[in-house]
Amino acid sequence: MARTGPAERPLSPHLQIYKPSITMVTSILHRITGAALFFGTLLLVIFLVALASGKTSFATVQAIYGSFLGKLVLFGYTWALFMHMCGGLRHFIWDTGAGLERETRLKLGWATLIGSLALTALAWVVYFLR
């Protein structure tokens, strides 16, 4: 089935053809953050199992999670969590059939992105101030 030359028929345009819009970007981010959270649950299981296993394993995990790289991953995990949550709230609105007009959906897209960043910032400000 391998084709060597260019297609001799018109092909439907794909992602790179379109100018990115906020609805498109947030839709893609919803899927990417969802997949990231799927694997991100490993962070939670490892933490809980280490805590249940005893002092030594807990100290090891805490040292890794508390390192600069660990914190960076946890920061990303926090944003993925809130981005997917805000995207989910947007889907609840759409599930009712509301909010699909051009103006509203653009606003909802920006609200999703900005809301997720604000919640991430809030969580980390609380962490650093405690």
């Binding site: 807990f58 969590l81 949550m85 709230l89 889907h91 609840f92 969580a123 609380v126 962490y127 405690r130």
Partner: peptide
């Protein structure tokens, strides 16, 4: 959808618990 609805308050609770755990010793 059912789990998504449940996840909203549970995620907020989860983040709060993690913040409480963040600086705790064993």
């Amino acid at each position: 959808r059912v789990t998504a609805v449940a996840n909203v308050p549970l995620t907020i609770a989860f983040v709060i618990i993690v913040l409480l755990l963040a600086k705790a010793d064993y």
